[in-house]
Design a protein around this nucleic acid. Structure first.
Lengths: 341, 341
DNA sequence: AGGCGTTGAGTTACCGGTAACGTAGGATTA
DNA sequence: TAATCCTACGTTACCGGTAACTCAACGCCT
């Protein structure tokens, strides 16, 4: 019976047992482990020896509970991992968080606000140190949860002049507008756009809106916009181009949701012997790694994805430690004129 | 003073307050919330009304603590997010976990066992429901921590006949061996390899070893192997090819660490007007999305990354709920002969 | 010798839930 | 009608730490 109990409880060594083994009180052991001071060197050595010998692993759940504090978890929601853009942002976030002893709790919201709401509720119930959410749109209940939870929060990606708490991103509308204006300046008159599901009021939609506005302002025509029900990857860029060109062969230039889709388009054009930029112009967005190996410089919008993540994490960490943090950070963008238009 | 307290404590509504407001005991409120039964419909309605009115959010930390249970977190360690291969695995894991009310706690170990050990210790102190680790190599202390923690564990990626607990992956050595044999059968005699940092005993090294063994067994020559100190992406594939060919122009075929590197090579060859497969053969690994838009089918090894993640999560969840789970799952691979050799 | 500060501890209460047990009162059964 | 069972709760103790407090022993000073 006793054996069974021991084997089933396995590693249930807690602070009391360490203290007992070291011949001190629980409190003294606690002080030693937290290096709080108020104990002799002799005691410290005794306690640490028992910690080592028994393989004591602190129960951080209990610590959080005792102090009525929060954990060191930071909830990070991103739409999905299939979109390369967000994996770079996530990497920037996690690198920074880890170096400050925090852990990323992942939330893939699949671009659905309802999923996000559920996830927020779950994560908040675990008392996170902070939250980073991709996008500025949330359900009313989510907003209420976030406000009353009173947890440091950064909304990233799409710039938001009045964030719930803090915000790090760029103005997607402007980036689309600038691209539109640039293409107009190149003499194009018939414009196309290819992206993926834009049901939600997301950043890609803002880019499309900016693009459309620029074209309208400049007297051009957005002949065709295609929103595929797919991920914004290489192959959707490939077949999206095929679809767009077959339904509207007069389009002179296409703006894609991101570089990967644009590269898909480049490969489609190569396969069909359509000259770039002679027969058609191609523009991407986000400057993704693939662009570096193309035979010509892709026309795109350069965005420092990693920087967004880092800055979001930095501001969050500041607020977590009670310091002042910038409420709104604009990381900006840069138009890369390239050779594909 | 009182106001200050209220505003600072904000949403500190706990079960006691809900119970008091509903005119029942804490225990009854607890039973209602857990739908445990043992209460009248009238009571249920009263309690739920107060939960709603007060915006009560359960403190899951306290629940875990009370029951001396584990959280619903699952620690997932991957080398890095910059490697597209692992993001697919991670996506498979998280999708499955989420649908069973678990959350992914991310750990980027940067291919360093010491980082992994630190991360394991931290995550274990948070009482996770389970762990998924990429790779089979761990520090002795990490292994000891994992064993004594007695938490469900899946080691993924590299197949391991004697895992600490469970294992999901494929035989990387064999996949390299098969590729080597296939290339030999195509008549090549002088072989090259380009990958990234192989200091650790990782899966890519196993592939290289399998490849080298096949070449040796077949009487060919592994003329040159290049291990760049970079990420296994497009551009390293591009300049790695340049480096390899300039130092050893006689190489007839190159096996790359993954498809992205191979695509970088394809673009290098296109830029230099080197014919594929006429002048040189190119082989990748992993069948990544970019391969779908190339003008010809890339010779590669197809691996179902998403499936690895799903299967790992499935087995973990089985074990978490106390059921039997497969100790070792081989997801296999498939050689894609392609047109680039 | 008595007063006082410092050092190195121990004691108590508590964080927010839940397991285990206790119990009043009505319904059912012998 | 009394014994018994069930329903719908309430009470108590506890999970593993830590904040806040208490306290003994010792050295030091006047």
């Amino acid at each position: 019976m006793t054996d069974l109990k021991i084997s089933s409880k396995n590693n249930k060594i807690n602070l009391s047992e360490v203290a007992k083994a070291a011949g001190v009180s629980k409190m003294t052991a606690s002080r030693v482990l937290r290096e709080e001071g108020g104990y002799s060197e002799k005691t410290r050595v005794k306690v640490m020896a028992e910690v080592e010998r028994l393989g004591y692993l602190p129960n951080r759940i209990a610590t959080v509970f005792a102090g009525d504090k929060n954990t060191t978890f930071v909830g990070v929601s991103i739409p999905d991992l299939g979109n390369e853009v967000f994996t770079h942002v996530l990497e920037g976030i996690d690198r920074k968080l880890v170096s400050f002893n925090h852990q990323t709790v992942l939330g893939m919201t699949q671009h659905a606000l309802a999923e996000e709401e559920t996830w927020i509720e779950t994560v908040l119930s675990w008392k996170p140190a902070g939250l980073i959410l991709t996008g500025r749109a949330h359900t009313p209940k989510a907003v209420q949860l976030l406000q009353s939870a009173n947890v440091p929060l950064v909304e990233i990606w799409d710039l938001n002049s009045s964030p719930i708490d803090m915000c790090v991103g760029l103005n997607h509308f402007d980036s689309g507008y600038d691209m539109g204006r640039f293409l107009l300046s190149k003499g194009y008159t018939r414009f196309g756009y290819v992206g993926t599901s834009h049901d939600a009021a997301n950043a890609a939609t803002s880019r499309l809106n900016g693009y459309a506005k620029a074209i309208e302002d400049g007297g051009g025509k957005l002949s065709k916009q295609l929103c595929l029900n797919d991920i914004p990857g290489f192959y959707p860029g490939f077949y999206g181009t095929e679809q767009l060109l077959s339904s509207d062969p007069d389009v002179e230039v296409i703006f894609f949701q991101n570089d990967n889709m644009a590269v898909g388009a480049v490969h489609f054009c190569q396969a069909q012997h359509i000259s770039i930029p002679g027969d058609i112009g191609i523009a991407g967005w986000g400057e993704l790694p693939i662009a570096s190996v193309l035979p010509y410089r892709l026309t795109t919008v350069q965005v420092n994805h990693l920087r967004i993540g880092q800055l979001a994490a930095e501001n969050l960490l500041l607020k977590i430690s009670g310091d002042q943090a910038t409420p709104v950070s604009d990381v900006g963008f840069r138009l890369v004129t390239g050779e594909t238009v």
